[in-house]
Amino acid sequence: MWSFFHKLGSPPWLYRISGSILRWLLPLTIVALFAGAVWGLLFTPPDFRQGNSYRIIYIHVPAAVVALAGYYVMAIAGAISLIWKMKMADVALRASAPIGAALTFIALVTGAIWGKPTWGTWWVWDARITSMLILLFLYLGIIALYEAYDNKEAAGKACAVLALVGTVNIPIIYKSVDWWYSLHQPASIKFTGESTIDPSMLYPLLFMITAFYALFTCCLLLNMRAELLSRERRTGWIARLVAESR
C-alpha cells in the first residue's frame, strides 16, 4: 500500500505508467466517443415532447457530469498538496483545471443551443446555469492564479486554497434544480428510485458519460505528463528520456 503511494509520488514512474495506459486508453476512448455520438444522433428515438433537439443530451449531460467530477479531483488534489505537500498532487491540480474549464464550457454552450429551440431563449439567469457559469469562472480563476505567480510553490498553495473554497459551489449546482424554481429540468437519472428516462435513451447516455470519464482520465494524464516534463526538465530521468528519444 505505502509503496504504491511512494511510486505515485515518483515522476519517472508516473510518466512511464501513464504512457503505457494512454497507448490503449486514448484510442479506445476516441472510438467510444464517436460510437456513442452516432448512437445518440442516429439510432435513438426522438423525445416525445422536445423532438430531435433533445439529442444534445448525449454531450450536454456527460460534459456537465464530468465537469463536476473534475472539480472533485481538483479539490482533493488541492487538499492533498496542502496537507502532505505532495508534489504530484500539485501537478494533478494544475492538470485538471483546463479540462474542467473546457467541459464546463461545453456544458454551457450546448445547453444554450439546446435552450433556444426548447425554451425559446439562449440564456436565462437561472440557478443551475448561473452556478455552472461560476464553476467555469472558478476553473479559469485557478488557471489565471497559477500563471500570476512567479514562485510556483506559492502558486500551487494559492490555487489549492481557491479550489477548496470553490467546493461550496458544487452542492449548489447539484441542488439548484430542486431548491429554486428553474427552467432547467431536474435530473432524469437517479441512483435511488426509478429513473424517468426510457432505456433506449438511458443506455447511450450512460455510455457517453462513461466515455467522457475516460476522456477526462486521458486528458488528466496527458496534462500531467506535459507538466512533469517542463517542471522536471533539469533532472536526470528527463535527460535520459531525451537521450533515448534522439
Partner: peptide, 26 residues
C-alpha cells in the same frame, strides 16, 4: 432533424472542436 438539425449538429461540432483541442494541446 425536423428543423432542429442546425442546433444539434452545431452543438456536436463545437464539442468535437473543444475535445480535440484538450487532447492535442498537452
Amino acid at each position: 432533424m425536423d428543423g432542429h438539425g442546425t442546433y444539434v449538429w452545431v452543438a456536436y461540432a463545437i464539442t468535437l472542436a473543444v475535445l480535440a483541442w484538450i487532447v492535442i494541446a498537452p
